[in-house]
Structure formats: C-alpha cells, structure tokens
Design a binder for these strands. Sequence first.
DNA 1: CGAGTTTGACCGGCGC
DNA 2: GCGCCGGTCAAACTCG
Length: 539
Amino acid sequence: MDRQRRELTFLHSRGGFLRQSPAPPPDQAIAESSCSAGDRKPPIREVDFFSSGNRSKLSSDEEESKNCKGRSTSTLSDPGTGLNLLSLNSGTTAALEDDPSNNDTEMRMLRLELERLHEENRRLRSMLDQITKNYGHLQAQLLMAMQKQAHLNQREQQQRDEMTTMSSPTKSAQQLMDLRPTCAAMDNANDEEKTREVSDSPTTTMEVMSKESDHIHTPPLNHPNNNHNIEDGDRTSQSWGSPKSPRLEPSKGGDEQLADPPFRKARVSVRARSEAPSISDGCQWRKYGQKMAKGNPCPRAYYRCTMAVGCPVRKQVQRCADDKTILITTYEGNHNHPLPPAATAMANTTSAAAAMLLSGSTTSKDTPTSANPGYFPSLPYPSTMATLSASAPFPTITLDLTQNHNPMQLFPRTPPPASATFPLPLHGYAAQIMGQLQHSMKLPAMPLVQLGVGQRHASLVESVSAAIASDPNFTTALAAAISTVMGGAPPRNGPDGNSNANNNNNNNNSGNNHFLPAGVGVLPGSPQLPQSCTTFSTN
DNA sequence: CGAGTTTGACCGGCGC
DNA sequence: GCGCCGGTCAAACTCG
C-alpha cells in the first residue's frame, strides 16, 4: 500500500492528473480504480503458504506480488488502464489542459512509465507463478524423500523389533500404537509406517480450486465415520485441538481411547466468498466461543456441532484479513451421527478432501492402484489453486472457492489414468453438479459410474461443452445445479441448508459407513454416501 | 423458559 | 520462568 501510495504520489508529481481526484483516501481510490477498471485481467492466483517457513521464505515475493497486484489495479490494472485513467477522467484531462506546454511530453512520459510498470508487473507475476511451481515441486520431493527415508528406517526398525519381539511383546505393541497417527487406520503395516512418516513431516495442504465462489460454498468435509483414514484419528483425538482439550470428548469409542497419542488431526478449511456472517452447511452448530486471533482484525468464532450429543465436530469461522469478503471456515472432527442429505453431499466432498490429505501423504506414488495420488503436485489440478498448509499444527487441506474459474476447471486438465479414482475432493461436487446440469439442462444421461475416469471426464467435458455452446443459460443452470448440490437450496426453493435436506439428490445418507475412497465422485443418488460429514451451503 | 450467543476467565502449549 | 496465544469453559445475557 505504501508502494501504491508512492506510485500515486509519483504520478501525481509527474502529471498532476490525480490531483483532480475528488478526494477519496488513497486506499479507497485504489479500490475504486480497481473496480472501475473492471479488472479485466485475472487476479494473481492466491497462494497460501501456511507454513511459517514457507511464509517467511516467500514473504518477500508474496509482498512483492501483492504490491504488484495492488499497483496493477491502481495504475495499470490491465493493458491500457493507465491510458484509460487519463482519458476517462475528465478531471485529469482538465488538469493536463491546465498545462498545455507540457501536455504531450508529460503524457508520453506517463505512458512510458506506465508501460514500464506494467512490464514489471508482468515480470513479477510470472516470478510468483514460477516460485509457486517450484515450491510445489520441492515440497513433493521433500515429502517423497522423507517417506523413502522413513520407510527404510521403519524397515530396519521393524527388523530389529522382530528380532526382539519374542522377548518384549509389550514394546512392540506400544510401537504399533505409536505408528498410528492421524491417519490411523491403515490397511497394512506399510501404510502405517508411511503414515507415521507423514505425520512427522510437514503437512501438505492442497488447495482445490473451484469457481463461482459467490455462489458456492464448499462444505468442508471432515468426515468421517466412513473414512477409515480419518476416523480413527478423529475418534481417538476426538475433540479438535484435542491435545488441549481432552475433556471435550469424554468417552466414546472406548477401545480407541486407550491409545490417545497426541497425533495430529486433519482439518478441512474452506475459503469462500460470502457476505453472510457464516455459512450454513447443513449441520446445526452452536457457538461456544469467539476470540480475536493475532494478525486478523476479524474475530474467530468457534462452533460445535449440536446435531448429536457428543458430536466432536468443531468449526472455526473467520474472515480473511486480506479480503473480508472471504469467509474461512475450518472443520475438524468427524460427525458421529447421520447427517441430512444436504449436509451429506457437502460432507462427502470435504471428507474426500480430508481423506485425500491424510491418505494422500500416506500413499506412495509407486502404488498406482491407490485411490489417492500421493502428492499434490501430481494432481491434475493447477497447483496454484491449492493451498498447502505445511506449518499448521494439524494437517489442513484448504478448498479455495474464492477464485472464479471456468466450471470446466473442476476437472483435471489432463485425464488421469482410467484406473484411477478422482484424486480430489471437488470431484464429488463436480459429479453432482454435472448430474444437476444434466437434469436441468436436459443433457443426455451419462453413465458416469461405468466409465473410466478419463472417459468420464471426456464425456462430461464434451457434453458440457456442447451444452455451453448450445445453451447461453448454462451459467444459470450451473448456478442452480451448484446451489442444489451444495445442499442449500436453489435460491428459489428454500432457505438454507440446515433444514433443506430434500433438495439434495443424495438421500441415502444414513447408516452407510462405507469408506469412500478419497475423491471418488459421488453421483446424485449415490448409495455410497458417508454417514457423517460436514456440509454447508450459503446462507 | 429453553436454546443460543456473548464475553471474560481459564488452561495448556509453545517460544523466548 | 514468563508471557503470548489459541482454544475452551461457563455465567450472564438475549431472543423467540
């Protein structure tokens, strides 16, 4: 901002054209100019480096980028913006006309200067993109290296343990317990080893991008009971932030309680634009606290799920410090009760995200049949849309719904192997949304389930592309579909997701605890809905 | 009057 | 050891 002010001051001194601006404070003026310019250029993708290390490491670049972005919107938000300012601002013109002797020269100088700044802006932007990419690659490499190393260590340790098992069974048992971190239930010993490794390593978060943030609020997903990967962890640690609040979840799941290692829990954070104070996600919440968090002028509210006694699910709601229109909702824990369909749909997505986060880091890349790709860089999504939280005390996956993207970007850029399942949580939504679209736009039914993923994507893309081409109301239909899928109600139908269970196609939400492989698309009417999940829709 | 919210106090972890 | 901070508790308060 200082930089922006300096720039404005600079321009002011150069041409004096800003002098005529009716007086909004610099910040406001910037915002206004940004708005008036129409922001025809997509904003720099926001990259969240939750890790303090990363943050500190990249802070300068980030700052630079922000400044760059700010400058971009204030003085050269897009090609020609500067000129537009000059030409559209009558006051400016008048100011320049007051000094006819230097008009041409000043104009030329200003143009040159603006062009130069624009170039610099572009350079910085590309630098930021590059840094983001590099960061992703490095993190992936680091994780892989750590996993390999850990795997080797574990093997050695295991061999040693086996040698001594006969004499000290207790110790082995204890070690086994220790191997159960957040992603507790693993299918085999190898997974447990990997899991442990992961929990010790920096957390990866991926930010899934989505679109139409104004209408979509993704539900978080912590979920649950269906998800083996998270269930144990959540059950054992129950309350979120469990290390600090062990009493919150008195006694449930007795057996698992015995082992109560202070391992991390996965969190699912959702960033979505919303003017509403909070998002309704199909669950009932009771506020139990509010705090001012450091570094954010907006208070953080704490909610607890009240749909069932003793439900361990918590959520935090806070507005983004940088952009107060962005609501950040963080979910933790698994519901221990059936959810309304509206909530289930959402929860499915969020739980998939959580599962992905947890199992993703526990799954080796060389296991192609795994349901989850191991690292976000391998995900077929633009890495810049994913926020990775590496330093958070809990593994956190952030679903960023604040960016506008083409609906097609819900799908991977490149189709994954046909044998793979959807690697990312939003696929659940995507599938549902597509289902809604099929319905609302009379698209031919697509047997998604039978198709391989690649085919599925291809079909979807083709069909939807065709729909877009043939139906100008696609956006409307998409919005309606999203509203429906989000569990909320399509604007015309109903109030909010809390009670609007019937709007959702997924009615089979109770009692089904089958674990949904992370990212498996949930189709409307899919019987494989998780029992408990957290969902939300817009208010 | 019950359910939900507000808000100051309290607790425990963590960094210095 | 101390202070900061995040998270939770619980009494007081509000609202329908």
